[in-house]
């Protein structure tokens, strides 16, 4: 896929990093403010998709992005399952919240295992949306002449 005009590239270079950091903020503060893993992961994926659309990609870059996003998606899913199994073996129930009263409520360090679940879900959603986009928009599948 080809890149876009220099105007779009300059704007994307300035804005893309901020979108990525905003997505990370939404994921990390999901238990205190609106947002969470689903919203933050989608915002991170939107930032990455903006960079790919503005600067363009070659076929080899698409192939490596497809492989690495598959790996990240499996990692996110396995992390979420690991948190659930940790609850089973330590606390006695599947998905029990470990140490829910640790830290002061309203601060970043609180709510037990909810922030870790948020991070796992964020990684998974971001990688899933990015891999769908990479496949749908790749140069290999152009039908119109």
């Amino acid at each position: 896929m080809k890149g876009m005009t220099p105007i779009v590239k300059v704007v994307a270079r300035i804005v893309g990093g901020f979108i990525f950091i905003y997505g990370c903020y939404i994921v990390l503060y999901g238990h205190l403010s609106p947002g969470g893993g689903f919203a933050g992961g989608a915002i991170i994926a939107a930032g990455l998709i903006l960079a790919r659309l503005a600067f363009g990609t070659t076929a080899s870059q698409e192939r490596s992005a497809s492989i690495s996003s598959s790996i990240f998606e499996s990692t996110g899913g396995l992390l979420f399952l690991l948190i659930a199994l940790l609850g089973l073996f330590v606390g006695g129930y599947f998905f029990i919240n470990l140490f829910p009263s640790f830290g002061t409520p309203g601060r970043l360090v609180s709510a037990g295992s909810i922030p870790f679940s948020n991070i796992a879900i964020g990684i998974k959603v971001a990688a899933a949306i990015l891999s769908i986009f990479v496949v749908l928009a790749s140069t290999k599948y152009i039908f119109k002449e």
Binding site: G30, H31, L32, P34, G36, S101, G103, A111, G112, I114
Partner: peptide
Amino acid sequence: AETGAVNRVTS
């Protein structure tokens, strides 16, 4: 008290 999360939707 039960989950420690301020955002009830997340809890």
